[in-house]
Design a protein around this nucleic acid. Structure first.
Lengths: 356, 356
DNA sequence: TCTATGCGTGTGTACGCACACGAAATTTGA
DNA sequence: TCAAATTTCGTGTGCGTACACACGCATAGA
């Protein structure tokens, strides 16, 4: 292992000077700088991140603006857990994260949570930019204060965020198209159930829908695609009639695709005897969805690994603050295909950090 | 952040004493120990791994016994890359890994590589225990020298290895069964192609076959399953006739499952016009397999994420040596389902560390 | 009775490596 | 020749680890 001292000795300077060169902190004559740089290269010197982290300990604070979760809205639990895991891991780097939860259906709650957040003057911010208008104000504030921020799960264009960590929704839709195509025949028809006019996240879900339709169009399949729209997720259950009648009316429907994370509600709504005959594809591995996967009612879930997204956000921001490492502009999470047969191998990390 | 000094101050002892308690190094009176332990618990003290690693720097050496790869046998490339990434990452912990490659078809090469390996007296060993008899001798040597070791990719029973990192092959077979079931109808038939009597790894592939058959049995599907056996992988290509005739003879065959990593060879063998009509399922994301996936000839690949296996081996062994962290007895890697639509999101890490 | 030896317990501190700041040394300009 | 500017050095810091040593007390031998 080559250390800074080794380099210093070879260059006949002190370790401090080498450090200045390493970090471009100036105050070194061109001559010395060249000499040191040459030796660094020759010896293939790499900073010891362990020692570096220890020395850098500067007690940064992070702040995370993310929707809250509860029994009804469990989707955001996974990113919370991932963020929790990441926070634990980077504590030793002198980094502390605070979560500012808000109500995903209420722009005011979003704005309010941010006002609380900004009071703590964090060194960097992770946010889920659900509301367009409010986000613009937020970004302006962050820019003014020169606080770097990254987007988690939702990619809003036209900001100079550090990066985006999340799923490629259009591509996820394509994948859903492919899977629905595989598990049906040409004669079958497919039903797409939109669980609501989404207040938020409509962009992501719309992208999935478009990706899905894109696949079917480009693959020249003659499979007919039906759409059924509900306005509120709860209405789905209340209007069991609607969906069951629909399926009776169109007996050729063998595939069902639910582009939101609410496939479980659709499964609940459909009569048991009808379920057996359907191939159902959904998104996101919420506990409810996993339940229906286990029972065999859901055939495929496409996971965006939101636990990993949360985790990766913390790690990315930390590397940026501590090691000045500039991340890729977009960090897409894998599109994971989950079935009854492989779900148990997919979330072992998550369970450990689950917040109950 | 609570430090050892904080604890020491509160307990009116020195940091050294706290350290003795933390590591059970003895030489502390029961009274003092209890007091310190109580405070540690109260304050929820966690060792700062950064500082710990820096202080522990002990320059461990690892050794890895793993099959070599080349253009023809590319399967082992991914674990090599993963090991490479891991090695880079743990260098700062004073850990150096040496790879001892061997010919996967030659037991003598395996034994010889180990003899070279043991000369370097490593502090821990990662090995792929392909050959049963030779492995027994190896294990004996390692036990005598009290060198800890873990199994990568192949799980040999009856040894006191530190842990096994790899795929659950039986479960992978079940998954293949499910996927084949999904992409065919009840009237269709399925062909399983065994590309050879495997010299090595026959246990894993046999497990896959059994898992596959198990699924079809338990699911009460009446789908007929054919088997076609070749003795050498190359023979497949030479005997194109055999497989093509088979498919002509059994026109109901719509699904093909290849439980080895050689699905690409099978694709090469089958006539183009026949391919279009088949749903092919294979294992492992070798470049050749990915090629056929991209073309649309292969429908599903089940990946055992061997890059991650290699990476995780290094990390696990490092945590064991440096932080005395005892790993789980088995660390199963996820069963990842790869299609044309999601393969590009799955291996971004791998590309960076690929060894050309 | 006094030194020697031992043991159990606990302290002090050097070390690992990079970082950053104040101080020192050297060069430059007037 | 002196002050200012530039370049370089020395050292304390972050935190845990582990070794040498110190202290108090007990037992043994002279």
């Amino acid at each position: 292992m080559i250390t800074i001292k080794d380099i210093a000795k070879e260059a006949n300077v002190s370790a401090g000077t080498v450090d200045r060169v390493l970090h471009n902190r100036g105050g070194v004559s061109t001559e010395t700088e060249e000499k040191i740089k040459k030796i660094l290269k020759e010896r293939n010197f790499k900073i010891n991140l362990i020692a570096s982290s220890l020395a850098m300990k500067k007690n940064h604070t992070l702040a995370t603006l993310i929707p809250d979760f509860d029994q009804q809205n469990v989707f955001w639990k996974s990113p919370h857990s991932g963020i929790e895991k990441g926070s634990q891991e980077v504590k030793a780097y002198g980094i502390e994260n605070h979560i500012f939860p808000f109500n995903q259906f209420d722009p005011n709650s979003y704005a309010k949570a941010f006002r609380e957040l900004i009071k703590t003057s964090p060194d960097a911010v992770i946010l889920v930019p659900i509301f367009l208008k409010e986000t613009k104000t937020i970004i302006q504030t962050l820019n003014n204060k020169k606080i770097p921020y990254l987007f988690l799960n939702i990619n809003l264009k036209g900001s100079d965020r550090l990066c985006y960590i999340g799923q490629k929704s259009f591509e996820a839709g394509i994948l859903a198209g492919k899977l629905s195509n595989i598990c049906t025949t040409e004669d079958d028809e497919i039903l797409m159930v939109l669980t609501r006019k989404n207040l938020f996240n409509h962009v992501a879900i719309q992208d999935r829908v478009e990706g899905f339709l894109d696949f079917h169009q480009k693959s020249n399949s003659k499979t007919k695609i039906h759409k059924l729209q509900f306005n509120q997720p709860d209405e789905v259950f209340e209007s069991r009639e609607k969906i069951n009648q629909f399926i009776e009316k169109y007996p050729k429907v063998k595939g069902v695709v639910v582009p939101s994370s609410r496939v479980s509600i659709v499964c609940e709504a459909i009569d048991k005897e009808k379920l057996a005959d359907l191939r159902i594809i959904g998104f996101d591995t919420t506990p409810q969805n996993i339940d229906f996967l286990k029972r065999g009612d859901v055939t495929f879930l496409i996971s965006q690994k939101s636990f990993n997204q949360g985790y990766k956000s913390i790690i990315t921001i930390t590397n940026f603050l501590v090691h000045k490492e500039i991340p890729n502009n977009e960090i897409p999470t894998p599109l994971e295909i989950i079935t009854k047969e492989n779900y148990m191998f997919s979330h072992s990390d998550e369970r450990k950090y689950s917040i109950e």
